[in-house]
């Protein structure tokens, strides 16, 4: 290739190309450092937990009820309580959340009321979870007289994650190409036919990702459940939604507060279990997303 033949002699430019490259390298080092920093913090925590907890992690630990003797203590009631909690919370919050999002995105007129509701939902997503606990205590536990039941806990959790489900569902619906909506309407479809046949199936991976991520948040939440008075020592497995319960984070919180070192190791073991459950949930979110996005050209 011959050199460019355009004469370039303007004195109006001072390219400083080396300086600009140096700034660029400095920047990339900065960004890399930021990533490494959070990775190191996370790894330190994980390693610490693993060292303390892994030797306590055995079948006895998973299948026993809590005990005042560390070597006989287990998290059976907490695991079962957490699973109950997640399933109930999902059953309550997903239909309400998805339906609200469909209404807001596909039906609601874009007026001041819509904008007010939208603003409030975004705000609610940022409200501290303990506030939801206070609401749950006042409304579900006391007013509706659900007592310290799984039902009261799940309803509180459902409220807590509802804004996130609504927002992520709205975003998933908004990401459906306008051409799909238009071509379905152009064939003489009613709005509900468009929603059921196209919008919800196409938005499903996005909705499921949002649901699973918010449920992951719910499974780790402690404060609202402590607020509504979930039990910390539960030597039974709940059999109905009106039974008392405990969940993993509460069991962890309870053990961490004990003076004996053995209980803190138990807490570390329970943290490992909680993290494995979280990892499985996030993994399933990714797998579901990939599975449903196979044929997406956009």
């Amino acid at each position: 290739m011959p050199e460019a033949t355009i004469p370039f002699k303007s004195t109006d430019f001072n390219e400083r190309v080396h300086t600009r490259h140096r700034i660029g390298m400095f920047m990339s080092a900065l960004f890399f450092g930021a990533t490494i920093f959070s990775l190191i913090v996370l790894l330190t925590l994980l390693v610490d937990v693993a060292i303390k907890g892994v030797s306590w992690l055995d079948w006895t630990f998973l299948s026993n009820y809590p005990s005042r003797l560390p070597e006989r203590a287990g998290i059976k009631s907490a695991i079962v309580g957490s699973l109950w909690m997640i399933v109930l919370t999902a059953v309550i919050s997903v239909p309400i959340g998805v339906a609200s999002a469909v209404f807001l995105e596909e039906y609601a007129p874009r007026n001041w009321f819509f904008r007010l509701v939208q603003l409030n939902i975004a705000n609610l997503a940022g409200v501290p979870s303990v506030i939801y606990g206070i609401l749950g205590l006042a409304f579900f536990v006391r007013f509706m007289a659900l007592e310290r039941s799984l039902m009261a806990g799940a309803l509180t959790m459902a409220l807590l994650i509802l804004p996130v489900i609504i927002i992520s569902t709205q975003e998933a619906l908004r990401a459906v190409p306008q051409g799909i909506r238009e071509s379905a309407f152009a064939l003489g479809a009613t709005r509900s036919q468009v929603i059921w046949s196209h919008l919800l199936p196409i938005a499903a991976p996005g909705i499921m990702t949002g649901v699973i991520l918010s449920l992951s948040r719910a499974i780790g939440e402690t404060a609202p459940l402590i607020m509504i008075g979930a039990l910390s020592f539960v030597a039974f497995v709940p059999h109905s939604v009106m039974d008392g319960f405990t969940v993993l984070p509460i069991q962890i919180f309870n053990w961490t507060a004990r003076p004996q070192a053995d209980f803190r190791h138990l807490a570390a073991a329970a943290i490992i279990v909680l993290m494995v459950i979280l990892l499985c949930m996030n993994l399933s979110a990714i797998l579901l997303r990939n599975y449903f996005e196979r044929y997406r050209p956009w």
Binding site: E182, S183, A186, L187, I202, Y295, R296
Partner: peptide
């Protein structure tokens, strides 16, 4: 009254 759009937009 059917319509065909500018961009081909089949359903997935």
């Amino acid at each position: 009254i059917g319509m065909v759009f500018q961009k081909p937009n089949p359903f997935p």
